[in-house]
Computed example of a mutant assay.
Amino acid sequence: MKNNRVITALVIIAVVIGVFLILGPFYIVSEGEQAVLIRFGQIVQVERDAGLKLKTPVIDNVHRFPKKIMSWDGEPQRIPTSENQFIWVDTTARWRIEDPERFYERITTIPAAFGRLDDVIDSAVRAVIAENSIAEAVRSSNRINEQDAEELIGADATQIEGDIEEDSFRELLDMIAFDVQHDRINKGRRQLSQEMLDNSRDDVADFGIELIDVVIRQIRYSDDLTEAVFNRMISEREQIAEAYRSYGDGRREELLGQLERERETILSTAEAQAQEIRAIADGEAARIYNQAYGQDQGFFELWRSLESYRRTMPNMNKILSTDMDYFRYLYNPEG
Results as ranks from 00 to 15, higher is better:
A113K: 12
I87D: 10
D99M: 10
R116H: 15
P66C: 03
L54A: 13
I87R: 09
L52V: 12
A93D: 12
L54P: 09
R94A: 15
D99T: 06
S71C: 03
V44G: 11
V125A: 11
K53N: 01
W72R: 04
V125R: 12
N61H: 04
V89Q: 00
Q45T: 13
V89M: 00
P66R: 04
R126A: 15
I59D: 11
G51M: 01
E83M: 01
G74D: 04
Y104M: 12
T109L: 09
Y104F: 09
F86C: 09
D99V: 06
M70D: 07
R126F: 09
V89G: 00
S71N: 11
L54W: 13
S82E: 11
A124N: 08
V58W: 04
I110K: 11
T81Y: 05
K53M: 01
Q85R: 14
S82V: 10
K53L: 00
M70L: 05
V120N: 11
R78V: 05
I97Q: 10
T108H: 13
P111Q: 07
V89L: 00
G74H: 02
A113L: 12
D60Q: 05
G74C: 03
I110G: 08
T92C: 00
V46C: 01
N84R: 08
F114Q: 15
D60G: 08
K53Q: 03
R78H: 05
E47V: 01
V62A: 07
K55L: 09
I97T: 06
L117P: 11
A124S: 09
A113H: 14
D60V: 05
I59Y: 07
Q42T: 08
P66V: 02
I59E: 08
F65P: 02
S123I: 10
I97E: 10
P80G: 05
R116Q: 14
I110A: 12
K55R: 11
F86D: 13
V44P: 09
H63Y: 02
V89R: 00
F103K: 07
K67R: 14
T92M: 04
I79V: 09
D99Y: 05
L54Q: 10
R116I: 14
R116Y: 14
I87C: 07
L117E: 12
R102D: 06
I87V: 13
R78T: 06
G115S: 14
G74Q: 04
I43K: 13
E75K: 13
Q77D: 03
S123Q: 15
K67T: 14
V58F: 06
W72Q: 01
R126G: 11
F65N: 05
D90F: 02
P57A: 04
I107D: 05
S123G: 12
P57S: 03
I110T: 09
